[in-house]
């Protein structure tokens, strides 16, 4: 029991380091991410952070066990630490936004959260200008990391569980992640097929502080072939990510706007389908894997696991 809690403490430290780096924004001032969002109007927030949500959705729907080899009856107990990253390209660094009505109505290209400087639009007559938000993260990859536990095999079925509860730490908000998935062996019904086949479904919830709630689902079809300690695997996946961003807007309302200051924005990740290819290595109780997924965005993941 003592050793378990020590292992858990070490893992928590790692996860806190990772999530803190990704989710908090260092500042010599004292504006936290949450306080900043509260001062941005809902129209700007949507386009500005969509790429981050797409990356988040792609990440959270990655890293599931890749090998389709599931015994009809047996013992699988594997704890994995999976790191994943969505590649950030030029398409994720800008979006088309419409300036305030009194300045101009032509959409302008401006920076997303991954972009550079925001666009500045000048009034055609008066000495006024409007600045769109600057990008905040200079990244070629949007990272994430998750621990997961896989257990089985019962009637050709394995279960995968993800659970990360992190309490509020100073300016870093509370984070909760929970995921559960089930994979079932198809090849057990097709003994003559020379590869392993499996199908799975995964469901996850993720929340940050009081502002962000998300749900993700994934349906997978997997194929793999094992050569001694080496397994080659691939698959197709359909996935959805739904995010609700809610906050109380504290900035000034646009002219004539009498709407409620309580803002609730529903956003959907734009990733729907992906194809995955990867390789895993089983060295006794040590398991390594890496794979790449290609869809609307490209995601790479790598994991280290312990168990049988």
């Amino acid at each position: 029991m003592k050793s378990f809690y020590r292992m858990w403490s070490i893992m928590r430290v790692g996860i806190v380091i990772v999530l803190f780096t990704v989710l908090t924004l260092p500042s010599s001032g004292q504006n936290t991410f949450e306080e900043t969002i509260e001062k941005i109007t809902s129209d700007n927030v949507r386009g500005y952070i969509q790429p981050m949500l797409d990356g988040f959705g792609a990440n959270i729907n990655s890293g599931f066990p890749g090998s389709a080899r599931i015994k009809k009856m047996g013992l699988t107990f594997k704890l994995q630490f999976v790191g994943m990253g969505t590649l950030i390209g030029d398409a994720e660094k800008s979006y088309m936004a419409t300036p305030p009505e009194h300045i101009a109505q032509e959409p302008v290209q401006t920076a997303t959260v991954f972009g550079g400087d925001g666009a500045v639009v000048e009034h055609p007559v008066y000495p006024l200008n409007y600045k769109f938000q600057n990008g905040l993260i200079d990244a070629s990859i949007m990272p994430f990391a998750i621990p997961q536990l896989t257990i089985g095999d019962v009637f050709g079925t394995q279960m995968t569980i993800r659970y990360v509860p992190i309490p509020e730490i100073d300016d870093f908000p509370k984070v909760n992640l929970f995921g559960i998935g089930v994979r079932h062996s198809i090849s057990q019904y097709l003994p003559l097929v020379p590869v392993d086949l499996a199908a799975g479904v995964f469901y996850q919830t993720f929340s940050i502080g009081d502002h962000l709630d998300s749900k993700a689902t994934a349906l997978t079809a997997q194929v793999s072939k094992t050569f001694l300690v080496l397994t080659l695997y691939g698959g197709l996946q359909y996935e959805t990510t739904d995010v609700n961003l809610s906050y109380t807007y504290t900035g000034p309302l646009p002219p004539g706007d009498q709407s409620d200051r309580n803002v609730s924005i529903d956003l959907k990740g734009e990733n729907k389908f992906r194809a995955t290819a990867g390789v895993s290595l089983a060295l006794g109780i040590l398991h390594l894997h890496t794979d790449i997924s290609v869809g609307k965005v490209t995601v790479i993941s790598a994991g280290l696991g312990f168990g049988i």
Partner: peptide, 24 residues
């Protein structure tokens, strides 16, 4: 493994010194 994963995923991501634009 925790350190490797942390280095892997933080190596490609630089958080800039942000200039926030706040409407007032």
């Amino acid at each position: 493994s925790t350190l490797i994963i942390t280095l892997f995923i933080t190596g490609g991501c630089d958080v800039t010194d942000p200039t926030f634009i706040i409407d007032t």
